[in-house]
Design a protein around this nucleic acid. Structure first.
Lengths: 219, 219
DNA sequence: ATTGACTCTATTGTATACAATCCCCGGTGT
DNA sequence: ACACCGGGGATTGTATACAATAGAGTCAAT
């Protein structure tokens, strides 16, 4: 039998989960919208089963809430949530920096440096979408290097949640250049294996990102 | 139709999810064990569907990992994970204290005080299981009062993860009394609406819990 | 006019049926 | 002895069928 959606290595459920999450984060479904299993299933040309499973996962992530026998509704994330996430990250990325600097191997360090150079290149070219991508990889690499499952999980989720925000923030004038120099400082500290400096640099970076977001929101 | 398991307000999926999670955390399923949908379904007298949904949620929480078309296997949590969780909590509960003190209403404050008094009572009676329960409620109430969805979600999950550890820790000699006095200090700070003091008290409390855990592990 | 019961529809909850996949294991040829 | 190939069982992935429930709208009795 020919499969409708599930080509790319992932299972249908996985693909649907990612798609729905992206759609919610993109605002395609607004808070309060109801997600009807059958409707979604038809739209994607699959049965209800994988849709259900995807929705259950969204529920656990807190992006939707479900009222038994009634329906499931989009929760979305508020700007309050985003501010909270930045505050939390400010704490946790410090921890991440500490652990990563202690545990990161030479190869990952090289890769980190490389990512930073690529960011410089694309920042120069003004391709900010690409820069945003690299930015994600940069931080993901740090999370990965902490070698801490709990920390990794939290920060990766958060990263995904605020991905769009961060991209928008990156496009505000001057921010990309500032962000770049902050990343350079982080790489510097990592190369020196200087925990104190790295922690400061990373926390500072998050802090500036948050401030920029708040400034952007005011306009 | 008569329902087999889903009596208590929850859906079958919910109950199965909670049960499986508890079983994994209790060590009934050890790391590497495979969870077979059909087997679990038969054991609980339900069909595969709700079992699948529960497993998908466990997967998202990182407690199991699934290899497509092969099976799902218990990941469990290592003692490294637990130490990491304590370290993370040490950061985040400070944040929680700050937010909760600023935002907690009088009624919740009363309740917090009440929980502390109950803990004192049961600590005196030596009913540590009950104390552990109250302890969970105590911290949950604080999380709730932060009014921050992201923070709440993370800390509640962690709390659940390490629930058993904490209970064991509470039973080591003298720890219950120490824990009680720490809780009293927290309540004190909350009543005074003293952010600095509350933050210090709560962080210190987590820190001591962690130290006690490490000490316990060494024996 | 209001209220209460009732049916009807939409939706989810659960069960089962069927398809696809992986992997072990044994046979077979060299 | 050993590599290779193929069958069959076990397991998950997906689809569909059926049950239960909530809620809205209707209609009759008061």
């Amino acid at each position: 039998m020919k499969r409708g959606v599930g080509q790319g290595g992932y299972s249908l459920r996985e693909k649907i989960f990612l798609k729905l999450r992206q759609d919610i984060l993109d605002g395609k479904y607004k808070a309060g919208d109801s997600l009807v299993e059958m409707k979604l299933a038809e739209e994607m040309g699959v049965s209800r089963t994988p849709v259900r499973e995807a929705i259950r996962q969204l529920e656990l992530e807190g992006l939707v809430y479900s009222i038994p026998n009634k329906g499931v509704f989009v929760e979305g994330i508020t700007s309050q949530d985003i501010e909270d996430i930045y505050a939390i990250r400010e704490c946790m990325e410090g921890l991440a920096a500490r652990w990563a600097i202690e545990r990161m191997d030479e190869q990952s360090l090289k890769e980190l440096e490389n990512l930073c150079e690529l960011m410089e290149f694309y920042t120069g070219k003004g391709d900010l979408d690409r820069v945003g991508e690299l930015n994600s990889k940069f931080h993901d690499l740090i999370f990965e290097s902490t070698n801490s499952k709990p920390l990794k999980q939290i920060l990766s989720d958060f990263q995904y949640y605020i991905g769009n925000i961060r991209l928008a923030s990156l496009k505000s004038p001057g921010r990309a250049e500032q962000s770049l120099s902050e990343h350079k400082a982080i790489v510097e500290a990592f190369k020196d294996r200087d925990v104190e400096k790295g922690e400061r640099a990373l926390v500072e970076h998050i802090r500036n990102t948050r401030l920029n977001y708040e400034k952007m929101r005011r306009d």
